[in-house]
Write a protein that binds this DNA or RNA. Structure first.
Lengths: 245, 245
DNA sequence: GATTTTTTTGACGAAGTGTCAATAATCTGG
DNA sequence: CCAGATTATTGACACTTCGTCAAAAAAATC
């Protein structure tokens, strides 16, 4: 089965094509702008054929979301492998998050549009399982950092606090930040400088609050941040400006 | 103009009726389950009449959201007026947030469904301004607490950190938490105890991280929490169990 | 009670969803 | 290479929803 028949090739290519067209429609015209009719028209096949690939419009969106999630997870895994203190490694996750948002804005946009129950509820179980599998592998990479921090003595948590709670805090900070930022008037109504600073500062405060050593007062995390970009994400090095505003 | 003609009365009553029916549909069947046809059928008027009240389906949803937002804001304002240390007052906001979520689940559900750009984008400007006005008054109540903390010497922020950043951190924690919690499988995929504890602990850590005195190690905030409920939200006193899981 | 203004109605056009019988293309074994 | 079996493709169809608008009904006004 190593080699595909021409027909199988065509089908595989078409699946890619549908996703690419779908992504464009989703980015350019939002969720309501993505319709099966439009996809069919754009790829010059009939609607029925599109339904052969995806069971519903939501299924297309979910498939796009999964691609996005895989990309984010890959970046997080690279970040988690940074060689440095455990707190630098968790900082690397924050950096990866920021780079993901700024360097793959299309993917990031899709995360906001597609990670909704309304979408996945109309999707075949395999798709849902696929999503859960990737999310789980992401969480594992993150929890491992906390576990390492505890064994290294950089962090000591009360008995009743599970490892994942710390990462969960960072995650909620990020999700909340991007949710609020995505609707313009929210940040507008606050006298807050837009961009990355508020989130970065809240990361620092939360980790300091948990007592994750070395504390921000004892270490130059801006320097760490630059080092992380240079070592882990050299392809984005030139874009250090992403952190400036 | 103090007294309404019967006709005006009827129209006002009907507006209420539309919102009530709309809320039920939204809660029970989600965003797609709310349709103008269904509303019209449920209230025994024609669709055209519904459109006399609201310019679109999204307009109905937005109106519902504004009612919800007003309710939350009122609770926050009560909480902010708690007589205690500044840090207790910010804790009171967290308590109010929790009580809002648990005691008004319908409203909370609506926040998640309706505070989307996709909704407000299709809404007349007055509605948008209305939302922004309420949000702003909410933020003012919150920022005032931080300002008081700084003048009281409970908190000292670096020059370049605006007051609102601290509240913004708490807000993003809450938004992120509820966003993640609203999709079952997210929390499921983490070994995290569900409910209020992770959020509460992250509140503590974030505020400790900012050095907002008295720090959690020097003060019994669980006791404060009970006091806040008893004094500010006596109507919910019996439901202290909301904080237990 | 006649006239003007306001309100209500439901049929309508446009768009979108997902289905399915009919048609076309492809594969398969002799 | 071809007949027959299998698989893929098509687009018309039934359905739903949105938002509009001319015509009808009701209310207000004089």
């Amino acid at each position: 089965m190593a080699v595909l028949t021409p027909k199988q090739r065509e089908i595989a290519d078409r699946e890619r094509l549908i996703l690419d067209v779908g992504r464009r429609l989703l980015i350019d015209h939002g969720l309501p702008g993505l319709s099966m009719d439009r996809i069919a028209e754009a790829i010059d096949y009939s609607k029925g054929t599109v339904y052969q690939h995806f069971s519903s419009k939501e299924d297309v969106v979910a498939a796009l979301f999964i691609e996005t999630l895989a990309k984010r997870t890959a970046m997080f895994q690279r970040a988690a492998a940074f060689r440095g203190t455990t707190r630098e490694r968790v900082t690397a996750i924050g950096v990866a998050d920021r780079l993901f948002v700024t360097q793959h804005p299309d993917h990031f946009r899709i995360e906001n549009l597609a990670d909704l129950d309304a979408v996945f509820a109309k999707t075949p179980v395999e798709r849902q399982e696929s999503r859960n599998r990737i999310k789980r592998s992401m969480m594992e990479a993150l929890d491992a950092i906390v576990a390492d921090a505890v064994t290294a003595g950089d962090l000591s948590l009360p008995e009743d606090v599970p490892y994942c709670q710390v990462m969960y805090g960072l995650w909620t900070l990020s999700v909340g930040h991007h949710t609020l930022e995505s609707s313009r008037d929210n940040t507008e109504s606050m006298a807050l400088r837009p961009g990355w600073y508020p989130l970065w500062n809240n990361y620092l405060a939360l980790l300091d609050g948990y007592g994750w050593a070395p504390l921000s007062q004892d270490w130059d995390y801006v320097a760490s941040r630059d080092k992380i970009v240079a070592e882990v994400f050299p392809e984005f090095d030139r874009h250090a400006a992403d952190f400036e505003d």
